[in-house]
Design a binder for these strands. Structure first.
Length: 426
RNA sequence: GGAUAGGUGGGUGAGUGGCUGAAACCACCGGUUUGCUAAACCGACGUACGUUGUAAAGCGUACCGCGGGUUCGAAUCCCGCCCUAUCCGCCA
């Protein structure tokens, strides 16, 4: 969530940012309500502190009087303390409900887009930051989409997944399973080379962690919830990995922190069904290697560029046609200040598939996570967090299968061959 | 799952009702000494919110796992929960 301090001090800038996200002037008024509610909070806090201060002082006096044997005088003060206590209790209750209202409002406000983010309503308004200029792979007329190829080569089986679990849980098998494993290994190795520490986190998290990265309270429906133990299956490695630095005050020399993790990702995805979600395009469980960075605010946008180059390097090694989009305000995720999406060309489906999303969150996440660092002068500041997929497997596999199909079989990109142990799927 | 013992500041650890936001030691940071390093010595050293101040800094409040209760007053007493260790049971 946004920092109260920033909303108070830079209301105009935030308001302008929200309008970039396609917020109406009426919606932007929530900022004024937040500030007003915060005024209320401060006033109540002051009264409460004053009441407690007086009561503390009286308690001390009573203690002294008791010791010096002036019992009657002590007794006479107790009435006042009781009154103060009632007052304090009421104020505290008021304070709690003010806090809840304030938090509700704060949670409802998305991050303020970076100044370089274009305004816009939806995906139509995204800017192509880097286009694919070379020709797309030329496929034969009888080229097949990946779900047909998978059937032909026995790579994954969605119907079997229905039997075992339900729709959207693919069962990979044979060379399909090996390809999956090879990609994970490849992505992790690339991240390691780029200086990211490999993490293997739990795949279930508690509510505190889900709150920390903003899945709770608003996106609860996206996650699978194990109610018996009140744990959530992670929708992305971002959740456990970013929470590593929750409630931490880092020292300057700890920064930057770079971490990478492979995890399966579980998404309930209440969303749409149909042609666009066939095969591996959208599933409830998929594999992903995530990269996460914790950065000094001065360096976060440089770090974002670094992450872009990293993902781009992977694209090139996989020999996939890709483009990079700079998302417009209206299409950006709630928590992001700036997001680039990577899309690969799926030659048989003849459309772009999103395979990676790289974002800088500035202090939006760290504010909730309480991830701070001590700056040069010893002052405590919120760190910036960033993350990106490098990469999401399911859709990469889809593109890989489709783009590389030949009459002889499906060709494995050179960089991947030492991981798969085979050069072709036939 | 059962039994027992515990959860105090970055770490170790003292503290059983007011003098404790918390001893002592270690680490970290600043300084003195030193050719340099080390040692020794001196000093500073939690977080959040509120408030005064241009600022430096000061003041108030809260926090000793979490939540509630008893009391004029709680780290300390009581209740519930969570977690950790050990033993037993179960088990990949």
């Amino acid at each position: 969530m946004l920092q109260l301090k920033v909303i108070r001090e830079e209301k105009k800038r935030i308001a302008a940012g929200l309008r970039k996200r396609n917020w109406s002037p009426a919606q932007v008024k929530v900022l004024d309500r937040i500030i007003k509610k915060d005024d209320e909070r401060r006033a109540t806090q002051k009264s409460l502190d004053d009441a407690l201060a007086e009561s503390n002082q009286l308690a001390k006096q009573i203690g002294d009087l008791m010791k010096s044997g002036k019992k009657d005088e002590a007794e006479s003060l107790k009435g006042r303390v009781a009154d103060l206590k009632t007052l304090a209790k009421n104020l505290e209750e008021a304070q709690n409900s003010i806090r809840l209202e304030l938090d509700d409002m704060l949670y409802s406000v998305p991050n303020c887009p970076h100044k370089s983010v274009p305004a816009g309503k939806d995906a139509e308004d995204n800017k192509v930051a880097k286009d694919w200029t070379k020709p797309f792979p030329a496929l034969a007329d009888d080229a097949q989409p990946h779900w047909e190829l998978a059937k032909k080569h026995n790579l994954f089986d969605l119907e079997l997944g229905v039997k075992l679990t339900g729709a959207g849980f693919p069962v990979y098998r044979g060379k399909g399973a090996k390809l999956q494993r090879a990609l994970i290994q490849f992505f992790l190795d690339e991240a390691t080379k780029a200086g990211y520490e490999e993490i293997l986190p739990p795949h279930l998290v508690n509510a505190d962690s889900a709150r920390g990265t903003g899945q709770l309270p608003d996106k609860e429906a996206q996650m699978y919830h194990c109610t018996l133990d009140d744990l959530y299956l992670i929708p992305t490695a971002e959740v456990p990995v970013t929470n590593i630095v929750r409630d931490e005050i880092l020292s300057l020399k700890d920064l930057p922190i770079r971490m990478t993790a492979y995890t399966p990702c579980f998404r309930r995805e209440a969303g749409s069904y149909g042609a666009h979600v066939r095969g591996l395009n959208r599933v409830h469980q998929f594999d992903k290697v995530e990269i996460v960075r914790i950065e000094h605010p001065d360096n976060s946008y440089k770090a974002l560029q670094g992450m872009l180059r990293h993902v781009e390097g992977i694209m090139k090694k996989l020999e996939l046609p890709y483009r990079i989009l700079l998302l417009c305000g209206g299409d950006m995720g709630f928590a992001s200040a700036k997001t680039y999406d990577f899309e690969v060309w799926s030659a048989a489906q003849k459309r772009w598939l999103e395979v990676s999303s790289v974002s800088c969150f500035e202090t939006f996440q760290s504010n909730r996570l309480k991830t701070r660092f001590r700056d040069e002068s010893g002052k405590i500041e919120l760190a910036h967090t960033l993350n990106g997929s490098a990469m999401a497997l399911a859709r990469i596999v889809a593109a890989l299968l489709e783009n590389n199909q030949t009459p002889e079989g499906i060709r494995i990109p050179k960089a991947l061959q030492r991981y798969t142990g085979f050069k072709i799927i036939d």
